[in-house]
């Protein structure tokens, strides 16, 4: 399903434009007939693992040629017009850094490949932004996964590109690094530049994106303003698991609530409730439990995975 949310308004000059793009590897269809425009700002490319996000991003970057359809990046075909890379910083999903180099050498390589014969201070500035100054003279082979991610981000942002394309950049990042990454993305957007960031974690994208592109099974499932899509998600039915001191009593009363569609009792003594409005249930449940003098020990949505969200969006 395409949600009824507004399509990203990209104006006359979208940053990325895909026209009926498909990609298959042998008999496996990775991306199927995707048409979309991505405009300025921060755009989240969201989808479960194996949805086709990376293939889509690789086609956008020009690393993969589409089996069918057309890709335009900043108005040109990246497979033939390599000059477009002067304006773009790209961080791929793989940990594709030269192990024998130091962090500084790797960022310097990135700058030189873009023909940026910049002063050393600019390289150090990019490294400082990702908080890697302490290890800039260490070999990349000694870096942890999170450090590699950060030095690759430094290599992507050196030269202040107009567009940053980041494939799962928060993989391996600890909470502090995550916040720093998100700040960099916001700063980039505030400076009038654009970011496309992919993730399979809804919250990661939610925190930084103006708009999202949802991909499921290689197809465009939804596209538009994040908050409108999020509102649509809030209205979907959820399964919620509840553990309490008296399941029978609480379950019986829960079934009478308007927000509850069904109640099941699990063999382990917990209650599984299907609710059409999890927000209302969250408000009503404590009051009900207090009235019945039942002690609540757990309240947990059990199908809040991105996959289930996408299933809902696609099948809904």
């Amino acid at each position: 399903m395409q949600t009824a949310t507004p399509t990203i308004q990209s104006g006359d000059n979208p940053i990325v434009s895909l026209g009926s793009v498909s990609k298959w590897f042998g008999n496996v269809v990775a991306v199927s007939d995707v048409t979309l425009n991505i405009g300025p700002g921060i755009t989240g490319l969201l989808g479960p693992n194996g949805a086709g996000k990376t293939t889509l991003l690789r086609m956008i970057c020009g690393l993969h040629s589409p089996s069918e359809g057309e890709v335009r990046l900043l108005g040109t075909n990246p497979r033939t017009d390599h000059n477009v890379y002067k304006r773009i910083g790209i961080m791929t999903e793989n940990e594709s850094a030269y192990e024998f180099m130091t962090g500084l050498e790797f960022v310097r390589l990135s700058a030189r490949l873009k023909d940026l014969r910049r002063e050393e201070s600019h390289l150090r500035e990019a490294i400082e932004r990702v908080d890697m100054s302490f290890a800039l003279d260490r070999k990349i082979s000694t870096y942890s996964r999170g450090m590699r991610q950060r030095i690759r981000l430094a290599a992507a942002i050196v030269g202040d590109p107009d567009l940053l394309i980041l494939d799962e950049p928060l993989n391996g990042a600890d909470p502090t690094q995550r916040i720093r990454f998100q700040n960099i993305l916001r700063e980039t957007a505030d400076e009038g530049r654009s970011v496309i960031i992919s993730s399979h974690i809804l919250e990661e994208v939610e925190e930084v994106s103006d708009s999202v592109v949802l991909v499921v099974n290689g197809k465009l499932a939804a596209q538009g303003d994040f908050h409108a899509i999020r509102a649509a998600l809030d209205d979907r039915p959820y399964h919620v698991k509840i553990e309490c001191s008296d399941s029978k009593l609480l379950g019986g009363e829960l079934a009478k609530l308007p927000a509850v569609q069904s109640v099941q009792f699990d063999p382990d003594g917990s209650i599984v409730v299907l609710t059409s409005n999890v927000a209302t249930l969250q408000l009503d449940l404590p009051a009900l439990a207090q009235t019945l003098n039942v002690r609540l020990t757990m309240f947990r949505p059990i199908d809040d995975s991105l996959e289930s969200v996408f299933s809902y969006l696609v099948e809904g």
Binding site: G62, L63, H82, V84, K86, T92, A97, L113
Partner: peptide, 15 residues
């Protein structure tokens, strides 16, 4: 094999 070729292929230079 090491997937480092992306660093070169994403540079603004002819193949």
């Amino acid at each position: 094999e090491d997937r480092t070729l992306t660093n070169l292929m994403l540079a603004p230079i002819a193949r």
